[in-house]
Design a binder for these strands. Structure first.
Length: 876
RNA sequence: GCUCGAGUAGCUCAGUUGGCUAGAGCGCUGCCCUUACAAGGCAGAUGUCGGGGGUUCGAGUCCCUCCUCGAGCACCA
C-alpha cells in the first residue's frame, strides 16, 4: 500500500492477467453459458485514435460484466489489414507503387526516405510482402495499446483479415454463393474511382458539395435546318461528355417538347444523330426540361440507357482521361466527320476537368455548329451552381461511371428478407434500427465485390482462353473448395498446368481481389470457427453482441447480416450495440484527416487507464460525446478515492487480523450498518438491471454517486469510530461493502479494483456461491442482494438517510460558523417528528461521534421541519 | 425533399411509465490540514428546461406547430 502509482499497477496487472489467462475463453462450455462478441477488427492503417479507445472500452464493460455474471466470455480481436487503407499507407510510408507487370525481386528493400520525391515501382508480390511486414508492426502496437487500456480480450482468439484462414473463408463463402447462383459477373457501368483505379460499391459512396457550372447547349433537329424554331436546348454541367451523348430525354407530358419526341437531334460540334425520347424521370422543372443522356454522366443516365435501350459511346478511360476515338466510316458516325474529329482531338487525352474547359471554348467559338445554320450552340451565359457529387469515401476526385467487368453478390432480390432479419436484432439504441432499414430499402445496386487492387483476398477464379488467347469470360473456372486459399495469379486451376497460363487454349487468372467488406462481413464466421470447428461455432454463434459505430451500419452491419442470411438464414448476433463518435470541442468528428486527434497512449500515461475508461463509460451508448479532458480528471479522482478508501477499510481489517473468510454477516446488528447495507442493496439491484440492458453509463452513474455520497462521505465517517474501536458489526460491514463496491466498479476500473482486491480479498475467500472465488476480481461474481441478505433483513435505507441528514446539518452549522468539523460542540438539539426521532435515536451515537457533539437533545415537534428536510438541527 | 437524433446552470451532461421545491460533475465563492485521502473534505450561489399553442388537478416529460444544430437517405440536367 504505497503511494498510488497507476502506471506501475497497470504494467504489473497486465502481466498478471496474461500469465494467469484471466480472460481466456473456455472451449467446450455450452452456448447458454457463453457470452460472445463480434469485435470490430480495427483498420490497421497506422494509429488508433481516442475514438477507438472510447468505443472499445464500452464493449469491454459489457464483456467484463458478462464474465462476472458467470458467463464464459468469447471476446476475440481481429485486425482488418487487407484493402486500400493498407495499400495507401504502405505506398506513402515506403515510397513505393505496385506495378503488376514487373517481375518479383527477392532482394528488394524499400527506401522510405520521406524527402525522396520519386516513387519506386515494385512487383505485385513485392508489394504484398511489404504490406504484410508493415501491418505486422502496426498490429503489435495496437495489441499493446489494447492491453494497456485493459481490454479483457482473449489474445488466443485473434485473426487478421489477410491471414490464411480469412482468405480461405472469404473465398469459400464466395464459392458457396457461386454454387447457389448468388454471384454473377457482368460487364456493366460501375462506379469507378479514377485515382485508385478500382470499382467501388454503393455503400462506399458519399455525396460532397462541389461548385459546378451549368451550360445550355443547343442541339439541331434533323430535317428542320431552315426552321428557326427547329432546335432543342439542354442544360448540362458536364459539356465534356457531349461526344458521349446518346439521346435527349423529355418528360412525356411536357407540351413544349411533344412535337420533338421520336425525331433525331444533332449534337453540336460532333454532329451525332441522337433520338429524342420521353421518360417520366425527366423533370420539366429542371433546366430546360430536356436532358442529354451520355454514357455515362450519372446514375440516371444508366437508368435511361438500360430502360430505353440506348447506344453505348464511352469516352472516359479508367484513368479518367478521354480515350482516343476515331470518327468516320470505320469509327463513330457524324454528319461532319472532319469537324467531329478535329473537335474531339482537341480534348482526347485530357482529364474530364481539362476537357470541360476546352469544349466550352470550342462551343463558344463555333459560330455555326449545326450544319448549314448560324445558330450558336451555346445559349446564354453559364450559371454557377452547387451540386452534390458522388465520391468514393476515401477518394479525392469525383467518381465516374465506367463500364467494366465486375463480380456481384445478389442483394436486390433479398431486400425484404434483409429488413426482416434486421427486425430480429436488438438495436441499441433502438433508433439505430431505422438507419439500417432505410439503407436496405434504398439499395439500388447489387454488391460489387471485386476490386482492381492487390493487397486483398484474390477472387478464386480463372477463365479459359480460346484459340486466340481471348478469355472466355462467360465460362469462369471456380477454384476447388478443398484447395483454398488460392492465388489464381500464381497457381493454375485444377487439371491445368502453369505453362498453359496466358497461352492460347490455356487459362488466365482473374486479376482482381475482393472488397475488404467481402471478408470483414464474415467476422462472425471467422471468429467462431465456421466451418472447421463445429463445436466452437455451435457454442458461440449467433453471437450475443456486435459493437460498432453508426457510420458503418450501411457497410459492416448490413453486409454481415446479408452474409449470415445467405450462409445459414440466421441473424449473426442478437444485439447490435452502436457507439457514438468522439467530437472535438468544436463538435466536429475527431478524425485523423482533420488533424485534431489526441494520441491515446499519451492519455493513458497522463491520467491512467482507469480514468480514461471512466470517461468512455460515462458516455451514453450511441450518443456523440465531446472530448473533454476534465472528465479524465474526474475519473482519476475516483480512482484515488477508491485507493484511499480501500486503504482505510483494509488497514482496519488487517489491524484486527480479520480475514475475509472470517467475516460473519450475522454480526451486523447495528442499525446504521444494516440500513446502510440496505441502501447498497438497492444500488446493486438498480445497477444490475441497467447493465443487463446495456445501459452502462447509467449503471456507473448510480454506483458512483452512491459511492461518494453514501460510502465515503458519510458511511465511513459515521462508522469510523466504531471500526477503530473494533466493533464487529462495523468491521463486517466494512468488509462486505468494500467487496461489493470493488466488484461494482471492476468492469469500469479494472486496474485499481484488482489492485485493492489483491490486498485483502483475493485468495482468502471461500467458494460458497455469493462470495467471490479465485485470484482475480475479474473472475468473481457480480454483487447480488443475496450476499447481503443476512444483514439487511427488515432493514430500511431510511435510517441511514436520517443520519446523513443530521450530520449534514451539523456540518453546515459548523461551516457557517467557520469552525473545524473536529471542534467540539457542547450541546445539540434535533427537532423532528416523533417517528423520525425514533429512527434517529437508534443511530445517534455514530452521529454525535462523527460530529464531535458532546450532548444531544431530541425534541419532538408536531410542526413539519423547514421545507425539504425531515428534521432541524440547532446548537443552542 | 424524406427520416432519425439533439436543444435542460458559464461548460459537459443526467432526468425511467407525467407527480413534492428540476439534478450531477467541472468551473466559481467561502470555510476546514478531521488519525484513508490537500491530487482532500465541508458548505454555498447559479435555470424563460429552444419558442408558441394544446391535453391534464399537475408537463422538462404527452400531443400539435415552428426555430436551431447534427446525422442518415434520396434528388442532383
Amino acid at each position: 500500500m504505497a503511494k498510488l502509482d497507476t502506471s506501475e499497477i497497470e504494467h504489473r496487472l497486465m502481466q498478471k492477467w496474461a500469465q494467469e489467462g484471466t480472460y481466456q475463453f473456455e472451449a467446450g462450455r455450452p452456448r447458454e453459458e457463453t457470452f460472445s462478441i463480434d469485435t470490430p477488427p480495427p483498420t490497421v492503417s497506422g494509429s488508433l485514435h481516442v475514438g477507438h479507445v472510447f468505443s472499445y472500452t464500452q464493449t469491454d464493460l459489457m464483456a467484463r460484466y458478462a464474465r462476472m455474471q458467470g458467463k464464459n466470455v468469447f471476446y476475440p480481436m481481429g485486425w482488418d489489414d487487407n484493402g486500400l487503407p493498407t495499400e495507401r499507407r504502405v505506398q506513402n510510408k515506403l515510397r513505393i507503387r505496385c506495378e503488376p507487370h514487373l517481375p518479383y525481386d527477392p532482394a528488394f528493400t524499400p527506401d522510405p526516405d520521406p524527402k525522396r520525391k520519386d516513387v519506386t515501382p515494385v512487383s505485385r508480390r513485392n508489394f504484398i510482402e511489404l504490406c504484410h511486414a508493415v501491418t505486422e508492426e502496426d498490429e503489435q502496437a495496437f495489441e499493446d495499446l489494447w492491453t494497456r487500456l485493459g481490454l479483457s480480450v482473449d489474445w488466443d482468439q485473434t485473426y487478421t483479415t489477410i491471414d490464411d484462414r480469412c482468405r480461405r473463408l472469404s473465398q469459400l463463402a464466395f464459392l458457396q454463393l457461386a454454387d447457389k447462383g448468388e454471384v454473377y459477373s457482368s460487364h456493366a457501368p460501375s462506379m469507378w474511382d479514377i485515382d485508385f483505379r478500382t470499382a467501388v460499391a454503393q455503400a462506399e459512396l458519399e455525396d460532397r458539395e462541389v461548385k459546378g457550372v451549368q451550360h445550355r447547349l443547343r442541339f439541331g433537329i434533323e430535317g428542320s435546318d431552315s426552321d428557326p424554331e427547329g432546335t432543342l436546348t439542354v442544360m448540362t454541367t458536364r459539356p465534356e461528355l457531349l461526344p458521349a451523348c446518346v439521346a435527349v430525354i423529355v418528360h412525356p407530358e411536357d407540351d413544349r417538347y411533344a412535337s420533338f419526341i421520336g425525331r433525331q437531334a444533332i449534337t453540336p460540334i460532333f454532329g451525332t444523330s441522337v433520338p429524342v425520347m420521353s421518360h417520366p424521370l425527366a423533370d420539366p422543372e429542371k433546366g430546360t426540361g430536356a436532358v442529354m443522356v451520355c454514357t455515362f454522366g450519372d446514375t440516371t443516365d444508366v437508368t435511361w440507357w438500360q430502360e430505353l435501350g440506348l447506344e453505348t459511346r464511352v469516352i472516359l478511360g479508367r484513368d479518367g482521361r478521354l480515350l482516343p476515338i476515331a470518327w468516320g466510316e470505320t469509327g463513330w458516325a457524324s454528319t461532319n466527320v472532319a469537324r467531329a474529329q478535329a473537335g474531339y482531338d482537341a480534348i482526347a487525352g485530357k482529364t474530364s476537368k481539362q476537357a470541360k474547359v476546352t469544349i466550352v471554348e470550342l462551343l463558344r467559338d463555333s459560330a455555326n455548329a449545326v450544319d448549314g445554320s448560324d445558330r450558336a450552340p451555346l445559349e446564354g451565359e453559364p450559371v454557377e451552381t452547387i451540386q452534390q457529387v458522388k465520391f468514393f469515401e476515401k477518394g479525392e476526385r469525383p467518381l465516374e461511371i465506367i463500364p467494366t467487368r465486375q463480380w456481384f453478390i445478389r442483394l436486390l432480390d433479398k431486400k425484404e428478407q434483409l429488413v426482416e432479419q434486421g427486425r430480429k436484432i436488438n438495436w441499441r439504441p433502438e433508433f439505430m434500427r431505422s438507419r439500417y432499414e432505410h439503407w436496405v430499402e434504398g439499395l439500388k445496386l447489387d454488391w460489387c465485390v471485386s476490386r482492381q487492387r492487390y493487397f486483398g483476398v484474390p477472387v478464386p477464379v480463372w477463365y479459359p482462353l480460346d484459340a486466340n488467347a481471348e478469355p472466355m469470360l462467360d465460362q469462369p473456372i471456380f477454384a476447388d473448395q478443398a484447395t483454398l486459399p488460392v492465388d489464381p495469379m500464381s497457381e493454375p486451376p485444377a487439371g491445368l498446368e502453369s505453362h498453359q497460363r496466358d497461352q492460347p487454349g490455356g487459362f488466365t487468372a482473374d486479376p482482381d481481389v475482393f472488397d475488404t467488406w467481402a471478408t470483414s462481413s464474415l467476422t462472425p464466421q471467422i471468429a467462431t470457427g465456421w466451418p472447421d470447428n463445429p463445436d466452437k461455432h455451435a457454442s458461440t454463434y449467433p453471437l450475443d453482441m456486435r459493437p460498432q459505430a453508426h457510420e458503418i451500419i450501411r457497410t459492416w452491419a448490413f453486409y454481415t447480416i446479408a452474409r449470415a442470411y445467405m450462409i445459414d438464414g440466421q441473424i449473426p448476433w442478437e444485439n447490435a450495440v452502436i457507439s457514438g463518435w468522439v467530437l472535438d470541442p468544436d463538435r466536429k468528428k475527431m478524425s485523423k484527416s482533420k488533424g485534431n486527434v489526441v494520441t491515446p497512449i499519451g492519455l493513458l500515461e497522463q491520467y491512467g487507464s482507469d480514468a480514461v475508461r471512466y470517461w468512455a463509460a460515462k458516455a451514453r451508448l450511441g450518443m456523440d460525446t465531446a472530448y473533454d479532458e476534465s472528465v479524465f480528471r474526474v475519473g482519476r479522482r475516483l480512482v484515488t478515492k477508491l485507493y484511499n478508501a480501500g486503504k482505510l477499510v483494509i488497514g482496519r481489517l488487517e489491524a484486527v487480523d480479520l480475514a475475509y473468510d472470517q467475516v460473519d454477516s450475522a454480526q451486523i446488528t447495528n442499525e446504521l450498518d444494516r440500513s446502510f447495507l440496505a441502501g447498497l442493496d438497492a444500488v446493486i439491484v438498480r445497477a444490475t438491471d441497467l447493465m443487463a440492458n446495456y445501459e452502462t453509463a447509467a449503471a456507473l452513474e448510480t454506483i458512483e454517486s452512491w459511492f461518494w455520497s453514501h460510502f465515503t462521505d458519510n458511511y465511513l465517517e459515521l462508522s469510523k469510530n466504531r471500526a477503530y474501536a473494533g466493533d464487529p458489526s462495523a468491521l463486517a460491514t466494512w468488509a462486505l461493502s468494500l467487496s461489493a463496491v470493488l466488484r461494482l466498479f471492476a468492469p469500469t476500473l479494472p486496474f485499481i479494483c484488482e489492485e485493492i482486491w489483491g490486498w485483502y480479498f483475493a485468495g482468502s475467500v471461500s467458494d460458497d456461491g455469493a462470495k467471490p472465488a479465485g485470484n482475480s476480481i475479474h473472475r468473481c461474481a457480480w454483487p447480488t442482494s443475496e450476499e447481503l441478505q443476512t444483514a439487511t433483513e427488515n432493514a430500511s435505507p431510511d435510517v441511514f438517510e436520517i443520519a446523513v441528514e443530521t450530520i449534514g446539518q451539523i456540518r453546515r452549522l459548523k461551516s457557517e460558523r467557520a469552525i473545524s468539523i473536529r471542534e467540539e460542540i457542547p450541546a445539540m438539539e434535533v427537532a423532528a417528528d416523533k417517528a423520525i426521532l425514533g429512527q434517529l435515536s437508534a443511530v445517534i451515537d455514530d452521529v454525535v461521534n462523527a460530529g464531535a457533539i458532546n450532548s444531544v437533545k431530541l425534541t419532538p415537534s408536531s410542526e413539519p421541519a423547514s421545507a425539504g428536510t425531515l428534521l432541524e438541527v440547532s446548537f443552542p
